[in-house]
Design a protein around this nucleic acid. Structure first.
Lengths: 215, 215
DNA sequence: GTAAAAACTTGCAACAGCTGCAAAATTAAC
DNA sequence: GTTAATTTTGCAGCTGTTGCAAGTTTTTAC
């Protein structure tokens, strides 16, 4: 090797990385400008200066390009899980990771994050894809929880993760669709975690028979 | 009108209903026989004895035909929710509806139910679609919960439904992928409901710091 | 430094899902 | 039985997606 400049990455890898990012950036920009359906693969390829055929060697489908960066986020979550100090209870770990991740997301100010959300809310196909990714992530979390808590019944572990992810997701979507500020979102998440830790039976409204007779 | 035979349904409606069912049945049969991707719209249309173009006036996409009957199931759930006796607490309603629905599903023996599940597990696109339907159903459930419990905070209602649906879904999927019998599934659901009612903190494994130092 | 090998890009052709449109067939209404 | 409304159908066309066979670029070996 000659120089090995640019941090231990061969020319090939660097170029691929740049191309991938160029395609993703072009795609998200065009999606934001004209909409998802109104943008063709040919448009994206032209804007990224590659051949249309090349698009599919970087992303398996037009939908996948929307989630290009999300895998990096998942890596962050994994890292936060690994950073668990000895003595921290699993529940505390959960709470910490959730709040840290939200903080990181808010701080990041991702230019594309907002666009992605908007796209997802508009295009059912994208929403479906996002839900599936979340579902896949659930599996990984369940496995991790089992590793941390060998004493926990495997089916219970699945339930714990499913309920937690489902509850948090509902809280986040509620806040989003109701124009909450980040601070309010954090409060809502904290509240949601509390409900799930203490149980639904801790909500008086759920254990009291409501008046349901009409006048 | 001459007779008004066949229960207050015009010839037109009856025919449409039959056509719709014919298409769905042909599609599910072919999917089961050769697989989803290996079956074309033309195949389905031929088997159902309609023109290919007609398929799309009954179902918006090839994927949607897989979920043809599911809307009827949802109607059942709605009815069960309405059948709430006065004095029943919301938590009890939840528990009752879940268990009744599972019983109905098990009793039904749907020939297509198993095939549908298999398809969903194989085809990511179908799994995504199913998750989205579940997500949409969550919204409706949240609205209903709010109607029943005006005292409940709207964001809390979303969390309650999200956590419940997420937890139950996780339990069901766990049982399915681990070859549980219907009886075991019921037990698992009961257990899951208990966890969510009493809270995650009621699981000792989650509130005890595990040993995490290696040897 | 050059030549061979490996990896990546590209163009071409083709298939399948899906849509709009207008003609043909069917059902309903009078 | 005639007319109006609705449904089915065929057609033409676009887009996403894939396989294949060049052509190009980067890497590796000498």
């Amino acid at each position: 090797m000659h120089h090995d400049a640019a941090g231990s990455l061969g020319l090939r890898e660097r170029k691929k990385r740049r191309t991938r990012q160029a395609i993703a950036a072009a795609a998200l920009r065009l999606f934001a400008e004209r909409g998802f359906d109104e943008t063709t693969i040919a448009d994206i390829a032209a804007a990224a200066e590659v051949a249309p055929r090349t698009f599919f060697s970087y992303f398996p489908s037009k939908e996948d390009v929307v989630f290009a960066e999300i895998d990096d986020r998942l890596a962050d979550v994994r890292e936060r899980l690994d950073r668990r100090p000895p003595g921290e209870t699993p529940l505390a770990t959960m709470r910490r990771v959730v709040l840290e991740t939200m903080e990181a997301l808010a701080a990041e100010h991702g230019q594309f994050a907002a666009a992605r959300i908007k796209l997802m809310l508009e295009r059912p196909a994208l929403q479906a894809r996002a839900l599936q990714r979340l579902y896949d992530a659930e599996h990984e979390l369940t496995e991790r929880l089992q590793t941390i808590c060998p004493a926990l019944d495997p089916s219970d572990a699945a339930v714990v993760v499913g309920a937690t992810v489902g509850g948090l997701q509902a809280a986040i979507m509620y806040c989003r669709t109701h124009g909450y500020e980040p601070a309010e979102l954090n409060a809502a998440l904290d509240r949601a975690l509390g409900i799930m830790e203490r149980g639904l039976a801790s909500l008086p409204a759920l254990t009291t028979a409501p008046e349901n007779g009409p006048a």
